[in-house]
Design a protein around this nucleic acid. Sequence first.
DNA 1: AAATTAGATTAGACGCATCTAATCCTTAAG
DNA 2: CTTAAGGATTAGATGCGTCTAATCTAATTT
Lengths: 225, 225
Amino acid sequence: MLSDVMEDYLKAVYELEREHGPPVGTSTLADYLGVTPPTVTSMVEKLEERGLVEREKYKGVELTPEGETVALEVLRHHRLLEAFLADHLDYEWDEVHDEADALEHHISEEFEKRLAQKLGDPAVDPHGDPIPTEDLEPPESPDTEVLADHEAGDRVAVARVSDRDDEELRYLKDAGVEPGTELDVVEHAPIGMFVVDIDGETVHLPDRVAAAIRVRPVDERVTET
Amino acid sequence: MLSDVMEDYLKAVYELEREHGPPVGTSTLADYLGVTPPTVTSMVEKLEERGLVEREKYKGVELTPEGETVALEVLRHHRLLEAFLADHLDYEWDEVHDEADALEHHISEEFEKRLAQKLGDPAVDPHGDPIPTEDLEPPESPDTEVLADHEAGDRVAVARVSDRDDEELRYLKDAGVEPGTELDVVEHAPIGMFVVDIDGETVHLPDRVAAAIRVRPVDERVTET
DNA sequence: AAATTAGATTAGACGCATCTAATCCTTAAG
DNA sequence: CTTAAGGATTAGATGCGTCTAATCTAATTT
């Protein structure tokens, strides 16, 4: 049996691996989880004993396949809950994250199954994040790019938005940016501001925000190999 | 801030007070919660420090008004969740208790509010247990009696069934006993078996089961003062 | 009234998740 | 090649919730 906290660590390692690639450093994890580095060290030692992460001292950690399965399970819970809150309880997308975080460790497999069924087995949550399937196979990484990496003139469709920052999400909701929205990059001002055009509306996005948005190319064929 | 465990203790004291009246003894609580008596002693000391229970050493505990409010809050969460699981996720009434127990400490006030709204502010959960109202005022005790106290010839309507024992609940579901069911007491066999008649069907209920059913008199005026 | 018994409490311990303070690697810069 | 800087780890402590073993209190029986 794993504690809630252990599940949180595994989920965090999973997400940080996606973001920066393995190995994930102690301080990176500590920041992400809001604890101190020694706390992380002692926790990852326990996770290593259980075969959930592989660790190289002074370097960082990486999930084992078993650890990844746990992370995907938790992530599936989290994202199904987010979808449920938005679809059936009228939550806005900036309100679902914390509630889902609180509940994700406490729902049974039965609950997960019935929730998925009720929702019609959705593929993505309200932020566009892919929901792991029931078999918990590692999903292939979808071919999305970070908006911040694009240049003036590109036309893209929003695929996913990071769900970790409520402020950001409210800002984007007001701006009309959500999964599916198509936009043209007008300018990347060096002051750290992105200017984009959405259906004729000009919208300004600070770099921090543009870095949290993942997009898919549109109109021009940019199909990478 | 109260821990989940503290909330469980307060809920347990509340329910045991209803059942046997205060004060609630250490071993009674220990049995109910599945822990040892010393564990209860140390926990109720902490609850006393926080003003949630009143305690007389070697006698037992009793909720203060503040403690009762916490208990009612948790109970409201629990019963709203049970109602939700049964109404919207197709759970059977013997399956809802454990799931609700796991979730009751982790839902936000916002979630509670939206759930109640979605359910149409139900007054009772699937077992007939009253759901505390949003203002958490202590509900007046409804005038129900234990089925086991009735004699042959009485006609009664089932009001509530204890939700603590899955076996029992499945047995009763099969027998067609649920809140609202009307039945005639045919015989109380001294072997510890109740015989009742439901719409012409004869149903046998062991004493243990009959003790978990609360009923309201029907047909004959037995309005007690 | 004394003795037994049922129940409650104290004493002391453990594992979890966390912290602060101190020390120890690793690496990049001089 | 030495050293300074930045991370990471060890050491040691704390609070929570739990346990077992030992002791104590209260109530009932004789």
